[in-house]
Structure formats: C-alpha cells, structure tokens
C-alpha cells in the first residue's frame, strides 16, 4: 500500500511518553527522564508532518461515513509536498522515541490490537430457534460501537471498535453479508416471515448451524491526540446458533394447541 503523506499545519500533539520508574527510583528522585514532565502534565511537541498508510488519517471507517473523530484531525488544508521527507518542526528540538505516540510516522495495524478485545457480538433469529422450510428466517445481530482502554504498543491508549459489516454463514452452503445487523420483524414493522435484508430461506429440512462474523473497523488514540483510523477490519465471531428446519403443514385440530398441547395434530 502506498505511503500517504499528509502535511498537517502545525498540529500540536499533547504526546504522552510513558517511561518506567520504580517506587525506589521515585522515592530517591531517580526516575529516568522525569525532570520537568510533571509540572505541565504533558510534553507538547509541534509536528508539521504526519504520515499514514492503510486506513488513512481523518477518515475513520465509521458508519454512514460520519465516523466519530471526523474533523478532529486538524487542518489538513495546506499541502506543500516540495520535499515531503523533510519533517518540519516549529523551531525547537523534539526528543521522540520511534514507535511512540509522538512519532509522526507511527503506523498502527490491526495486529497491534492484541491488548484490546472487542465485545463479542451476539445473534438471534426469528422464529427463535427453529426454521420453516420455504419461508424466510430472519437473523439479526447485536453489536455496537464501543471503546476499550489499554496499552497500545506499550502506551496507554483507547481503541474504538465500530461494526462495519456482518457476514452470515447460514449452514446450508449459503452465505450473506450486510452492512447492518438486521432487526426483529416487529422492530421493522413487518409481518412475521417477511423477507428482510438479513433473512434467509431454507429449502430443505435438517439441522443447521448458523454462524456470524462481525467485521469491526477500529480507530485508536493516545491521550490528548485525535482519533486515527486503522486499516482493515477485525472479524469477531458471534455465538453460533443451531436450529432445526422443518416443513410446515396446515392441520385442523380439535382445540387450540395451546389449550390442549397433546391433542391430535398438535
């Protein structure tokens, strides 16, 4: 993937640089690099350069294209790529450890998110737990955007997961994809056994195992910094459902089956 260089117009990062310090070092005032950090709570550095690959800065893959964090990435207007490899600083020296949050060329990928476990999505179906052959079965998923805190590349950070896609495997060889998780018939104001964006019609009787994977888009931010997108998506499997499919027949029964469940035909 091509390296995309974006010149940011004097965006000030409040870049926390974590460093280890034991209690004995704190007591003895021997912490490495500790001087001057605590007074103003943060190392301000001004960077005139940013680079990203993959997801792209300022375009988190949120739903509806209005992803959270949009517009927080600072002014990206004045593109001056006369010599894009020169890092423009605003007149003072910056000590920045490579691969730390202040590193303007830091690229975070999905594989760096090992410390961040997105919520496991769940799925449901209508009818609940059974299938009528030849009629649509409605599937729906529960997954929502959420934020996790933890260490990213060794630095405290937040990661926001946003469901971007839903992929069903209906267990009969058919698969389905949707950008929405679907919803119950009642919530869509549809009569039962209606077709929906996430429904599937089984053609043969049998027991089916229905699996769902939710593709989460992810963004991250270090404290004080804007959200940045991460390229790609993270597939998280939901609970599988096992459901029997049977043929429905119309039968005449003597009384309502709810009142006489053991009656003939019920």
């Amino acid at each position: 993937m091509a390296l995309v260089l974006v010149v940011l117009a004097s965006v000030v990062f409040d870049a926390p640089i974590a460093f280890a310090c034991t209690l004995a070092q704190r007591v003895g005032s021997n912490c490495p690099e500790a001087s001057g950090v605590f007074d103003h709570g943060g190392v301000d550095l001004s960077a005139g350069f940013d680079s990203n690959s993959g997801g792209g800065v300022g375009t988190p893959r949120g739903v509806n294209g209005t992803g959270p964090g949009g517009g927080q990435d600072g002014a990206q207007g004045s593109i001056d790529l006369a010599d894009p490899m020169v890092i423009v600083r605003d007149g003072f020296t910056v000590n920045c450890v490579p691969r730390s949050p202040c590193d303007p060329s830091l690229v975070v990928s999905m594989s760096d998110l090992v410390n961040f476990q997105p919520v496991v999505p769940t799925q449901g179906m209508e009818p609940n737990g059974w299938i009528v052959v030849g009629l649509p079965t409605n599937f729906f998923a529960a997954a929502s955007a959420h934020t996790r805190s933890g260490l990213l590349l060794g630095f405290p950070a937040e990661v926001r997961f946003t469901p971007a896609g839903y992929r069903w495997n209906y267990g009969d060889g058919a698969t389905g994809g949707s950008t929405t998780g679907g919803a119950r018939w009642a919530d869509q104001n549809l009569p039962e056994f209606s077709e929906t964006a996430t429904s599937h019609t089984y053609l043969a009787a049998g027991d089916y195992v229905i699996t769902l994977a939710v593709d989460y888009a992810a963004e991250y931010r270090f404290a004080g910094q804007p959200w940045k997108g991460i390229g790609g998506t993270l597939a998280v499997p939901a609970n599988p459902i096992t459901a029997p499919a049977d043929t429905a027949r119309t039968v005449l029964v003597a009384r309502e089956c709810t009142r006489n469940p053991s009656g003939p035909g019920c």
């Binding site: 769940t122 799925q123 449901g124 009818p127 737990g129 059974w130 009528v132 039962e192 056994f193 609970n239 599988p240 459902i241 096992t242 459901a243 029997p244 429905a248 027949r249 119309t250 039968v251 029964v253 309502e256 089956c257 709810t258 469940p261 035909g265 019920c266």
Partner: peptide, 18 residues
C-alpha cells in the same frame, strides 16, 4: 394460513443458541 397452526403448536422447540 399456516401461521396460526404453527404458532399454536409451537410450545417450546427449545433449541437455545449454543
């Protein structure tokens, strides 16, 4: 028409999601 009959008989097929 099949629906009321199905609904009436469906006491509890009980295949809870595993």
């Amino acid at each position: 028409l099949v629906m009321p009959a199905l609904a009436a008989c469906a006491t509890a097929p009980a295949p809870a999601p595993s």
